[in-house]
Write a protein that binds this DNA or RNA. Structure first.
Length: 254
DNA sequence: ATGGCGTCCGAGGGACGA
């Protein structure tokens, strides 16, 4: 079972690219973030005709997440980790015995904005809510909006203390690992400077000025089934690309 | 560098992203 996470930065603006990528790579599970549309505007038929079940939590203009799965989804949770949050940032389902959580974690704005404490509080709630599933096969994937370490940042000095790299954010990320989860990409790859996001501005992709902020955190039983995690950085270089690349966790069947 | 680029909303520029 292959599980891909991809912040598409508007599913409607990106639909041609998303469908082409699905047709080429056939992920078993695809977690999408930043849909930027409400559920009725989601192009579900295009996904269903390709063999996917679709569960979504849409929102107008901002945020919005969806899970696409070739296998049936059960125990769907919409609105995670804060069920009352007006911002649509989390959806989860059980797929073939694996609890899959798909997240669009808050950006955090600037450190002195009210978006920053919102992000930290959101992570505190996430940690609390994930505890209920940490003892069973669990994959937490998505756009975390945190670069866990300096090796995940193209210019650590320039980014030091900035949002996505600040110490309180990295502490929140570590607390998720402390639940018994593993940063699966880092488990397989020790090299620095592999990124999943590159700024549209300043020719960021061509200069490989990026951050690794899209992750799969997994429990030990999932890690034992994992064979690799891959970043399709070429997708980022295609015309009308999202600023995030798709990232895929590859699992053996049980 | 309160910028660069891209998307949305809605009809002009502001909000937001990371």
């Amino acid at each position: 079972m292959n599980i891909t996470t991809w912040n598409v930065n508007s599913v409607r603006a990106r639909l041609e690219r998303v469908l082409a990528w699905i047709d080429a790579y056939q992920p078993d599970v695809l977690g999408l973030q930043e849909l930027k549309c409400q559920d009725p505007e989601l192009p579900v038929e295009a996904f269903r005709s390709r063999g996917y079940h679709v569960e979504s939590l849409g929102q107008k203009t901002y945020n919005g997440v969806a899970l696409l799965s070739k296998r049936p989804m059960t125990d769907v949770v919409r609105g995670f980790p804060n069920p009352d949050d007006p911002q649509a940032r989390g959806i989860s389902a059980v797929i073939d015995g694996v609890r899959v959580v798909n997240l669009y974690c808050p950006n955090g704005g600037d450190l002195d904005s009210d978006k920053y404490p919102y992000k930290l509080g959101w992570y505190d709630r996430l940690e609390m809510e994930l505890r209920q599933w940490a003892g069973q096969p669990l994959v937490v994937c998505g756009d975390f909006n945190i670069a866990p370490a300096d090796g995940d940042v193209w210019d650590p000095k320039r980014w030091e203390g900035q949002v996505l790299c600040s110490v309180p954010e990295r502490e929140r990320f570590q607390r998720l690992l402390d639940l018994g989860l593993t940063d699966s990409w880092r488990h397989f790859h020790k090299e620095p400077n592999v990124f999943t996001w590159w700024d549209y501005r300043g020719n960021g992709y061509a200069l490989n000025q990026g951050l690794r902020i899209d992750h799969h955190l997994v429990t030990k039983d999932i890690l034992a089934r994992a064979t690799d995690v891959t970043v399709d950085h070429e997708e980022r270089g295609r015309p009308q690309a999202s600023d995030h690349a798709p990232v895929t966790l590859h699992l053996r069947d049980r």
